[in-house]
């Protein structure tokens, strides 16, 4: 598969590396050259320096040929822009976006995009741990 990962933060880097190791063709887009260069030597995909908020930069990533786009910059709004452009302009079949704000996540839930909300995920996981711990379940009230 050809996958475009937008955002070379910790999450983007880890996803890009794992996907190339799994044999996929990956392009990683970020506006910071430093971030792109911090990829370990094992990354065999391409690095593209560009502003994800510029349509031309998204075009240069050959997004219209991608099977999957993963939008994981540090900004919710930028991920939402990239995800919607990937779906509506470039017709990418599968799009995943990270959204930190759970309230925003709810607004965009109907969208044809898979949204991952780290806040909600962590909260669920932590509550799950507390539930499994008999010492904490009493305080939780359920």
């Amino acid at each position: 598969m050809f996958i475009v990962v937008v955002g070379a933060g910790r999450l983007g880097l880890q996803i890009a590396e794992s996907l190339t190791h799994a044999g996929h063709a990956v392009t990683l887009l970020d506006e910071s050259r430093n971030a792109l260069e911090s990829l370990a030597g094992g990354f065999s995909g391409s690095r593209l320096e560009g502003d994800a908020a510029e349509l031309e930069a998204l075009k240069r990533s050959r997004m219209e040929e991608a099977d999957v786009v993963v939008a994981v910059t540090e900004k919710d709004s930028l991920n939402l822009l990239v995800a919607q452009v990937a779906r509506s302009v470039f017709g990418v079949p599968r799009v995943v976006a990270r959204i930190y704000d759970p309230q925003t996540e709810e607004v965009y839930r109907h969208l044809d995009v898979d949204i991952v909300c780290p806040t909600s995920l962590s909260a669920q996981r932590i509550l799950g741990i507390l539930r499994d711990d008999p010492g904490a379940s009493a305080d939780q009230g359920d």
């Binding site: 908020a53 822009l81 607004v107 965009y108």
Partner: peptide
């Protein structure tokens, strides 16, 4: 300042 912010603000204002 950011185009992405203006898009999201308009969409949330309308939908929510």
């Amino acid at each position: 300042e950011g185009d992405e912010d203006n898009l999201v603000v308009c969409q949330i204002a309308k939908k929510l």
